[in-house]
Design a protein around this nucleic acid. Sequence first.
RNA 1: GGUCCGGUAGCUCAGUUGGAUAGAGCAUCAGCCUUCUAAGCUGAGGGUCAUUGGUUCGAAUCCAAUCCGGAUCACCA
Length: 593
Amino acid sequence: MSVTSTIQSAVIAALEQLYNQAFSAKDFQINQTKPEFEGDYTVVLFSLLKPLKQSPDALGKTLGAYLTETHPSLFSAFNVIKGFLNLNIAGSYWGAVLNDNYQDGMYGRKEKKGKTIVVEYASPNTNKPLHLGHLRNIFLGWSISEILKADGYDVVKTCIANDRGIHICKSMVAWQKFANGATPESTGAKGDHFVGDYYVLFGTEYKKEIQELTAKGMPEAEAEKEAPIMKAAQQMLVDWEAGKPEVIALWKKMNSWVYAGFDITYKRIGSDFDKMFYESDTYLLGKKLVEEGLQKGVFFKKEDNSVWVDLTADGLDEKIVQRKDGTAVYITQDIGLAVEKYEAYRYDQSIYVVGDEQNYHFKVLQLICRKLGLPSSEGIYHLSYGMVELPSGRMKTREGTVVDADDMIDEMIKVAAQKTEELGKVKDFTPDELDKLYNTIGLGALKFFILRVDPRKRMIFNPEESIDFHGFTASFVQFSHARAKAILRNEQPDQHFSLQHNEALLPLEKELIILLERYPAIIQQAAYEHNPSVIVNYCYELAKAFNSFVTEHRVLKAETENKKQLRLRICQMTANVIASGMALAGIEVPERM
RNA sequence: GGUCCGGUAGCUCAGUUGGAUAGAGCAUCAGCCUUCUAAGCUGAGGGUCAUUGGUUCGAAUCCAAUCCGGAUCACCA
């Protein structure tokens, strides 16, 4: 049990004894005591004054005296200032926290809850390479999954490949028309980039054709529909859904190129999935559900044969669920996917890591699932994150300001290598070890930079700032870990030494133990909020405190053997917690750097 | 226009769910390596928490209005 909840229970019991009134944890607050006051934890008394008909001073003194008297091993002293009861926690209590957990690599992780959460993330289109926005998505999804696991859930990491639809047909048409049979193998290109180039080519050709048509006097809106290359793409989608063999063959070939490219990137960033779903499968189930919905009267057909759902009663609009030509739209497959996921995992929650521009889409999805009476609907949770912007503004494909994921990763690792060489601390590393270290530092920096921001907020990605290895960065935290390990390489804590608590803890020692004690609660909070930035910020805070501690106090040459053992335990536990926390963000920490 | 999200130091971000004098990093300035890793540490300056009103012992945090920025309201995904 955490200190905070221990104090809470003690206070509740005390109030029951002293005033014969029952309170719950929600009736009053326990905070860490502000540094300018004496004490470790503070009970805020204001909310209790009225029900107890007490003055702040009287209540504080009575409660403080009672608590210190009845829990001498927990509270060593107290003071009351205005409505705040400041409690000193006994040194022996902190000693026990340290002693019980310093070797535990699983510290902070919860027991299994027996509940399943499905997390969907990445979800790329198979027509262009991954960019910075995808990286935020993948880092978030992967990290949230790990955090939920640590909090005791069974997690299934899933990915839906958006492998069908008009956008896929566009790159297929362009390849057919312009590639002359070129392949990634023949050109040496990475598969996803190769296909992406044809998608871009489609766009430029399309624009060209529109210009030609409007030059002949056709109105622009009509030209957009009549452009031959667009008509070819639309026809291809119809052929694809009809299962025309040569279209399917082409589709399979091009998708396999893209997957090969994605796999390389996933592997580099250490991301993985337990289960892949393919839109090309789920859309059929979606269409079946649309059919059922029509029977049930949840959907209705318009004159042109397109199928709609009326959500005006729920404050939204009418929404199309199937085109007049019978082909599926985006949401059709999502309805199918929701059912498929539920059938497969009977989940308690189904998290979709998808950008906030799709808030409306997920509102609609949940409503439709509910109207269809699907059991999958209630667990749907859209983890909506903000867009990644550059200092110059939004990334735009058309303006070529999209930051490519592979380029970004290369750059980070390159700069990490440069920086490490400049410092020259690992000259004895083998080339393989160096390679691994550069990866750890470069990728760590990228992940940290992205995950440190609250997911809901838009974030500005400043390339220059992201490769800064000072301050609030992954390298700072990694460095702190390496520093702790350097000490531990000289000497390990003696497990058989029994710590004495007659020497008072120094402020920096106590600060670190208090921070370490909070780690389990931090995991819980991050899981509850679906927010990896909670973990990342915590790791930074811990690393910062550790660096102050290490510069201020000697560990190996501590004043007494008792102090030395205490500090060695602090080093060990800090290293463990940093490694554990960073792992939840998908960031590795080196032994040396 | 409707709906949703955001606005905290020059910049990038925290702020323990309503608590004490609002915190970090970067940038600027001043110090600290003969010591377990200086990718570090210590200190200084920098704030009308968008604005106004309200709720109460107490508001960056809750409510209302206004201003600014973004997303969305597609037979794109």
